[in-house]
Nucleic acid binder design. Sequence first.
RNA 1: GGGCGCGUAGCUCAGUUGGUUAGAGCAAUUGCCUUACAAGCAAUAGGUCAGGGGUUCGAGUCCCUUCGCGCCCACCA
Length: 858
Amino acid sequence: MTNRSHSFRMPDKPSLDGIEAKWVDVWDESGVYHFDRTRSREDVFSIDTPPPTVSGSLHIGHVFSYTHTDTVARFQRMNGKAVFYPMGWDDNGLPTERRVQNYYGVRCDPSIPYDPEFVPPAKPDPKRQVPVSRRNFIELCDTLTAEDEKVFESIWRTLGLSVDWRHTYATIDDNSRGTAQRAFLRNLARGEAYMSEAPTLWDVTFRTAVAQAELEDRERPSAYHKVAFHKPDGTPVHIETTRPELLAACVALVAHPDDERYQDLFGTTVRTPVFGVEVPVRAHRLADPEKGSGIAMICTFGDTTDVTWWRELQLETRPIIGWDGRIIADPPRGLESGAAREAYDSLVGATVHTARERTVELLRASGDLVGDPKAITHPVKFYEKGDKPLEIVTTRQWYIRNGGRDEDLREQLIARGRELSWHPEHMRARYENWVGGLNGDWLVSRQRFFGVPFPVWYPLDADGNPRYDEPILPSEDQLPVDPSSEAPAGYTEDQRGRADGFMGDPDVMDTWATSSLSPQIASGWERDQDLFERVFPMDYRPQGQDIIRTWLFATVVRANFENGTLPWNTAGISGWILDPDRKKMSKSKGNVVTPLALLEKYSSDAVRYWAASGRLGTDTALDEGQMKVGRRLSIKILNASKFVMSVAGDGATADPAQVTEPLDRAMLAALAEVVEDATAAFAAYDHTRALERTERFFWDFCDDYLELVKTRAYDTGSAEGASARAALLVALGALHKLFAPFVPFVAEEVWSWWQEGSVHAQAWPDAAAYRAAAADGDPVVLAATAEVLRAIRKAKSEAKLSMRAEVEHVRVSGKRVESARAATGDIAAAGRAAGIDFQATDDTDLTVEVTLSEASEG
RNA sequence: GGGCGCGUAGCUCAGUUGGUUAGAGCAAUUGCCUUACAAGCAAUAGGUCAGGGGUUCGAGUCCCUUCGCGCCCACCA
């Protein structure tokens, strides 16, 4: 509040047109959102912004959740914190590779040498992608992501995000690569990262390993095939399988140890049909007597249960599926017989699908397929971005421990989840659910091109074979390194790939292996220690509920290892955006809505209003109706502000000492409550409540208070008039600030009509100051007065009269008449009533009898 | 199979530790040029709070149960 008298500079016709461009530029020049890095940790509010994937287009869901975060950032800034609000771009990984392939019509072929003169095809032909070297491919990725990032930044600015644009990062930039490699080397040194050759979930399309967190189930049609195995005496043992093509990979049969039907088989062997391989029959608790015939074939590897059986029962290994998803050329051990070879050779090179058909033919021919396959549908594991079922292939991969095979670590990480403050609280259950259900460590290596390479080389022995157990590591000051183009210390580039030379680790890190370090990347960990100490551990991690198991969990894992703390103290989890039919909006459903047209149609503030009406953790439908409401609110703020200023007139002051009238004090008392409520709501990350309370007050302020006092306020010759004018301005200032986090453009616009500087740099309203200004004011006075006014309006409306119609007399009775009596003059003026009298009765309801004037009724 | 969330007016949603007669916006209806705003304003109508049971002086709110919807997880032969 200020006692300074004002001159008002409001336009005749306030408008939302062009308001975004105007203030985006002003904010950029004034640096109002710049982080003040002289402030110490306790005065800082730091946000670990989710880096959006720049390879896709921004959709309205981003606008939704980023607006939530921005309201928090703006509140905290006005609440006196130095807000560290950086922006990252996730330009690393498969989505970028795909977009580059489609955009330029190329594909990466690491065997091709670099061509510095390369120019992508003028007209990309998706069916004939031009092969390019890895380096050329990465250059194209860099070029395109830089373009994408510009577009994203422009949209974010238009939306009014109060990001400090001097603090941006990209998940593939030098800082991010260096940070990811440094953290990895430290994980390795402490034994938290390790290499292992093991069965791995494998996507045959992308030809890369994938992690447990990236799986999803999809219902697929399949069929049970009843197949006869044979005991040594020739009697058949029937199993049922949905994957007959893996018959050649069969290493055992398994049944439940308590299954009476198979007791005499345990410990014996049977022969596979067609291939005639002798395999043991074993007992294991995971075999389900209820499924099929109760006895199953174990293959290397049909699913993750096979892996468990294979490991726990220490079975043979007979892999038959290669990295390309086709049957490999060499038959596994045990298929040495001529007939087995011949059968196997007919499968070599076939896809899984074709191999299945051929194996079924072979089984039919040998008479070992019993009856016809029974069609079913069942869930099959897919890589979330893939479109072919995952296979399980044994490969050498890097892992980071995550508690998946270590009870102590798991408990430690669950405890971290309990330490974290979640909004909404119930999202914590998803975290615990996930961590509790992990069945292996985090597989972080990917056999892809565009990503952060592992900072590792391997010496080659005299035969040119890599010695994986003696990796060569760079020192931290060499980071970031690219082992595929730089030689390790002590070697020269011409020794690459030669006997007694070296090779670079060919893999790149999982995108989460980098983005899990976003707090360290953004905070300047090991790069800008001064900054790091001011902002880390961070305050707030906003993110989607779908990536609790990936981004959130992985970030907790990394900070736990590296910093021994939580990466932030609070997580705010957004809900989904649903399309107007309440279906989840997603690219694959094709129902994604891009934001620009909506921002232009309704204004940024209007779209923000819609977004801010959705609470954390709650799914929200895309609702243009709410945007219309937001637009109406924005226009109302413009008009009401203009009106208050014109009523108050130049030279008026927002001086609380001049507020003497009971009705004016009542309004300020109500305002104090609103400020208290909104402040508490923001502190609890409940932005919807803060908005709701502010909005409710504002509409009542316009509809009732403003109408009641405007006549009095025009009276420049009295103390009563001065009281109204001062109260109007005090409330207006508070409203501008309360609305600033939600509708920053309009709030800045109206603020600029009467104040210096940015509203976004102002101190958040202080409830105590309004309470003091309200003095003995009682909100009941405003409520009772408004009730009388409403009754007068109702009478006019029911008589189908103009609101301007004259009222002869108003009689108010009830318990609360004294509250309304204090505003007799205002009621008479606003209601155009010639006379009012009040009668105190015991009735708790306020009764208002309105006698309309003869003239009006005529 | 395990876990989480949800079910309040035609639609979208509030309803803070149990407390007058369950609220708002949109849509609908009836009106109104009213010296900020007709992209406005005023007013009206609209609900067995999913069903059943219980605790309580009192339940939309707490407990049990049934039904429906959504999401997450699960070793899915």
